[in-house]
Every structure is written in C-alpha cells, then in structure tokens.
Amino acid sequence: MTFSQHVAVITSDEQALIVASDLADDFKRDSALRDRERRLPHPELEAFSRSGLWGISVPKAYGGAGVSNVTLAKVIALISQADGSLGQIPQNHFYALEVLRVNGSEAQKQRLYAEVLAGQRFGNALAELGTKTAHDRITQLRRDGKGYRINGRKFYATGAIYAQRIPTSVVDENGVQQLAFVPRDSKGLTVIDDWTGFGQRTTGSGSVVFEDVHVAAEDIVPFQSAFERPTPVGPLAQILHAAIDTGIARAAYEDALYFVRNKTRPWIDATSDIATEDPHTLKSFGQLSIRLHAAEALLERAGEFLDRAQADTQADTVAAASIAVAEARAISTEISLAAGSTLFELAGSQATLAEHGLDRHWRNARVHTLHDPVRWKYHAVGNFYLNDEKPPLRGTI
C-alpha cells in the first residue's frame, strides 16, 4: 500500500483555510481542460494529499487538527469552486472518518487515523444499482476463519479509483450493515472507470467489484448502528454535499461577473452602451448575489450546529444539526443550478463556446445535486418547525 510522500500535518483551522485557498488557485487553472478531456486528476490529488488537508478532521487527540465543521465545509467549498470534481472526491473520505470517530474501536482509530495523517486516501463503495431503494444493500460479508470475505458490486464509488483504502458497506450474516475498510490492492477487488455522467466527470464515480475479497476482522467498523441512535454521521455527510454545491455556485457566479464585465455586449434595446449598466442584468446579478450569500451563510450556520452536535451528541442536537444542514442543502442546490444557468442568460451566446468551458458549472451542479432530492429537504424542514417532528436518522434527509 503506497502513501503520498512528504505529507504536511495541518495544526489549525486558520492554516487549513490558507492551504485550501492556495491549492484552489492552482486547481482552477486547468479545471476546464480536465473536464473537457475527462483527464483524471491524479497529480492534483497527490498535491491535495501532500497538503495535509485530507487529515484535518482527524481529532487532536490522534494527531490531527480536529478542525471545526465550519472550516471543513469552507475547505470543501473552496476546492469545489476551483474544480467541482476535486471538491467531491474527498467527501466520502471525511464521511468514513466520521463513522470511525463515532463507531470505531480505540485500536481502529489509532491505526486508521495514523494512515490518513501519513497521506492515505479513503474512497468509497457504498451505493448499489438494482436494489429496491437507493439505500438498500446486498453486498455480502461472510466469515472466513479469523477474517471475512466480501462479494458484491458497487456503483457511484466516488474516489475509489484514487484511494488506498475503500470503505465498503456490506451486509453480514445477521443482516446488519458494517463498514469494511478494504485495502485497494486486495486480491479480487476491481475498480472500473465506467462513470459516464455528463457532470462531475473526473470524480471517478464508477464501479467496484468484490469477488471473494478477504478483509481482516480489525478492518470492520460497525455502520448500521450509527443510524440506530442519534449521531452526527448523517449531517456530516450532508454538509459536505452542501459545501460542494456552494463552491460550484460561487464558481459560476464569479465566471458570470468576469464574462459580463469583459466580453458581453449590451442588448440592442438597452439604454447604455455598456453591458454592466443594463438594468435587467443588474437585477439578475442582485438576485444571484443575495441567494449565493444566503447559501454561504447557511452553510456556515450549519457547520456551527454540527459542531455542537459533535460536542454534545443527543437527539435534540443531532436533529437541530440535521435541519440546519438540510436548509443549507436546499439553498445550495437551488443557487448552484441557478448560477450555472443564469450565467448564459447574462453573458450571452459567446459564453456557450466550447473553449470557455462554462457549461461545466451547470453540468456539475445538475449531476451532483441529484445525490438526494431537494424536495425532501423542504419536507423535513417544514415538518420540524411546524410539527416538532425530528428528521429520520440516516445519511440523507
């Protein structure tokens, strides 16, 4: 198993944000080219890993920075603004680390956190095609001597192609879901680059096939129990998705500003010779600005609620965090789609030329926001405030 070399160890929230901002500047440079050519970002991910950012959620007690969820969300938003795919790739890495924090044994935490701080990336093999619902799992975990064997097939395995370990949801002989932290180089494990989504094109979100794959008992972490009691695992997963969409929205908005300022011509009926003085354009930018700032504020607020739920985990704090995150998810979905689409209305036909690559923002937002339906966010939020009904305990609401 290989690790990234010369990995930095980030020690504070402030350092994490500075490093993320610097990396984002580098990642933005060729983001349109990577999208257009579906060039998988192997060198960028190595830089990402060496920066130490993949270890920032490791608790201080285990040598990490233990950054706040406000900071974690900002880091993901910054990277997603530069490149939506790069921002999504570590999402399930941080999700797996939260499952480990909540349900892992002390020995598992010591060992797996150390691997992350040394530069190891975790992917994921959670979702499956062809099951009754999107949350059903049939990949099997069966005991074999002192260890286990895994058989099954996964899809939407974001990050697996780039990972050294692939946390995999499996169903044991008692019908209980576990999370197996499977080494990427395990015999019988095949990662297939068959992701053909029209957005988030370089996430590598394809298939993972397990054919009698051995996994050690010490690499199995309880999974289902994280949703049988109040834990922050669900809202942690969701705030990262909200951060990705918020970053994509900010990228589309900034590109719209640049294009209208520098390239767009005013419409024939406008009273000004300058596109930036068109009253309809001003109104549209005003609407986008307000919604984007609201999304960014709700994302920060959601991080604060999640920090409280991690510090004092009980039914009420987890429910409040889940609702705050659902609010951020709802508005980030809408502004990412609106910014990606309105960009062309404001910038004009010139903006649709392939060399600009501006269509990637809407495509990335459209594909990523399908992760779970925004209509159910509004249902959960309304039910919470009107009927005092807590949201369900799972990874999505």
Rank of each mutant, 00 (worst) to 15 (best):
R201G: 00
G204S: 04
I248H: 07
A275I: 01
A326D: 06
L112I: 07
P232A: 00
A315V: 15
R29F: 08
D136C: 00
K146I: 10
S12I: 00
G64C: 04
F344N: 06
F210L: 10
Q140A: 13
D22I: 12
G175V: 05
R29W: 04
L129E: 04
A380Q: 04
D35W: 15
Q91V: 13
G147L: 08
H93W: 00
T369I: 09
M1I: 12
V116A: 12
D25N: 11
F305E: 09
L189V: 07
N124L: 06
V260S: 03
Y253M: 03
K154F: 09
E296G: 06
D278N: 15
G395P: 00
A217E: 06
R308H: 14
D212C: 08
V102D: 03
S4R: 15
H42A: 12
D22M: 04
S272F: 03
T281W: 08
D316Q: 14
G87M: 03
D307K: 00
D30F: 08
T196H: 13
H280C: 10
R149T: 10
A351Q: 11
R265H: 14
G52F: 13
P183S: 09
N69L: 06
P183G: 01
D26N: 14
E218W: 11
V99M: 04
L23W: 01
A82T: 10
Q120C: 14
L78S: 08
Q120F: 04
A251D: 04
K28G: 14
T342Q: 11
A216Y: 14
A163K: 00
L129G: 11
L282D: 15
K263E: 13
A251K: 01
D273P: 05
F285T: 11
Y162F: 15
V176T: 14
Q15I: 02
A324I: 09
G63Q: 04
I150Q: 03
H241T: 10
M1Y: 03
R250P: 03
D193C: 09
T203V: 13
A96C: 03
I192A: 01
A216L: 15
S4H: 15
S272H: 04
A243W: 06
P222M: 08
R149P: 13
A157N: 08
V9R: 14
